[in-house]
Amino acid sequence: MLITKVKDHRKIQEILKGYNPFVFKCFGCREVHFPEEEINEILKEGQGHLKGIARIDYLCREEFTRRYLEAFENEVRATKSILVFSCGVGVQVVSRLLEEKIVFPGCDTFYLNGFQGVTAQDFDCEQCGQCWLNLTGGICPLTACSKGLLNGPCGGTTKDGKCEVNSEMDCGWVLIYKRLQSIGRLDLLKKSAVNVRDYNLIIRAAVK
C-alpha cells in the first residue's frame, strides 16, 4: 500500500505561481488513502495559475495515462511543467511520457505494512528472499523487530514487552518467544545456528 502525503503547501503554491503547470491528480490505488480533498483545497487557491487538471486513477498504468495526455493535449502543450499528485511511480511514468517537461511531485510517498500483498496488514514482509519464519514461529524478525535482529532480542525491550524505539510497538522478539512457547518449539531458538542475512540475494534480484 503506497500512501501519499502532500508536500509543503507553500512550496506547491510557489510551483503553481512560478511554473503555471498542468496538474495530474491520481486517486488510485483507489480506496487506499489519497488526500484528494486537501489537494483540491490547494488547487483552488492556485486556480488562476493552472493550465488544467486531469483527475485520473492508476496514473502508473501507462496505456491509460497516454490516453489522458491525448485528451488534454492542448493544455499540456501550453506549459513546460507538470505537477503530479501521486505516488513516486506515477510521477516517474508521467515524466517518462513527457521527457521534456519539468515534472514536479506534489506528494511524498510512504508505504503501509503489507504492500507486498493486496491488503494493509499489521505485519509486513521485507522481501528478503530467505524466509526466516520457520525459525520464529511465523513472526518475521526483520519487520517485527526495529533492528531486524535475527538471533534474539536486543537489551532494549521495556518491562511491558515493548520496543525501545517506540513504546506503541511490541518487541518482535517477545512476540516470537511467546509464539514459540505456545507451539512448544522454544528449542528452535536454542538450537538454531547464528543467522546472518545475505543481502546479495536482494541485490541480485534487484539488478536482474
Binding site: Y199, N200, I203
Partner: peptide
C-alpha cells in the same frame, strides 16, 4: 568485492 552478502 569479496563479501557479496554484505549490506551496502
Amino acid at each position: 568485492g569479496d563479501h557479496l552478502q554484505a549490506k551496502p
